Amino acid sequence: MSAAPAAPPPASADPLPPEERYALLLTPPQARSGWRVVPARVAAMCAVELQKLRHDRTELYTRAVQPALWLLIFGETFTRIHAIPTGHVPYLDYLAPGIIAQSAMFIAIFYGIMIIWERDSGVLTKLLVTPTPRAALVTGKAFAAGVKAVIQAVVVIAIAAALGVALTWNPLRLLGVLAVVLLGSAFFSCLSMTIAGIVLTRDRLMGIGQAITMPLFFGSNALYPVSAMPGWLQAVSTANPLSYQVDALRGLLIGTPAHLGTDLAVLVAAAVLGIASAASLLGRLAR
């Protein structure tokens, strides 16, 4: 008996005519525009920063020296002499979230130098002629700075844990720490890019950055409670976004009373205003 002939392969349900298939090969896909490119741009900038750290880890080691000194020398000494009232919380525990915020700010506050370098090398001009919105470029760079700050925060948390600081290891709280560090770093990097758009040179940016970092740090609640400050410094601390970042980190990491809703709202608003300000000056920087 002869075998039955094989059935022909089923035809596709909706075959395209040849002219339409050729048109798909010859016509490029429509470029994404507007805010649809924001997630891709943010992810791309973060990937670039991670690649830099992967090829050169020296920055991680050198930047870990300063927070380690703050915790080892300043924190241990003031814990012994009980000079700063922190209630039932040991001063070293009280200090650790402030040093995390400080180290993240120090990374972000000089991020504008990267923008000026990109302007000098022609990279910024090429980015600005793409259909990507300027605010999306700034957002990507701001959160790329946040990636570095998060890595730095992990290093500081590891040092603090080695020194015996009673930190929480609740995954949800650690995710909150991640969000707070990202938002704070986004604001300070946008502040740096705004200053870069005003001064236009690396030397001036370095000078201004060095001039404002310590006032921002000492004018916050990173080292001492707001109640221990004089009245004028309390007003400065209230207007300082770093204070809200430190307050949120303390509440999340060591469980002190905090105003997490207010802290996050202020950090989000500061980041949005910083992105808008830096984006408005990006074109001036590229001239």
Rank of each mutant, 00 (worst) to 15 (best):
I107G: 06
A83K: 08
D203Y: 06
R173E: 11
H88A: 15
T86F: 12
A101E: 04
R80D: 12
Q152G: 08
A162H: 05
P97C: 11
L205C: 01
T139S: 14
S121V: 15
A186E: 06
V129G: 04
G112V: 00
A108I: 04
G146K: 12
I81G: 08
I107T: 14
F187K: 01
H82S: 13
S185Y: 01
H82E: 15
V154W: 12
A211L: 15
G176C: 07
R80Y: 11
L191N: 01
F187S: 00
I99R: 06
L163H: 06
V155Q: 05
F187W: 07
V156H: 07
S192L: 02
K148H: 09
S189F: 00
E118D: 14
A136F: 03
A96G: 08
Y91F: 15
M206F: 11
A196P: 06
V199C: 02
A153Q: 05
P85T: 10
V123C: 09
T86V: 15
D93A: 14
I109R: 03
A211Y: 05
V181Q: 00
G146S: 13
M105T: 13
G146A: 07
I115D: 11
D120Y: 01
I212F: 04
G176E: 08
A166H: 15
V181D: 05
I99Q: 09
A135Y: 12
A108D: 05
P131Y: 08
L167I: 15
R80Q: 13
V177T: 11
L137C: 07
L205Q: 02
I195P: 01
I195N: 00
K126V: 12
P171T: 10
T213K: 10
R80L: 14
I212N: 01
A160M: 10
G87H: 09
I195Q: 03
T132D: 12
V89N: 09
A108E: 02
N170G: 10
V89S: 10
K126W: 11
I81P: 08
A160T: 09
K141G: 00
D120C: 03
A166S: 14
V156Y: 07
L128M: 13
F143Y: 15
V165E: 10
A149S: 15
F217D: 04
G87R: 08
G146E: 06
K148C: 02
L175Y: 09
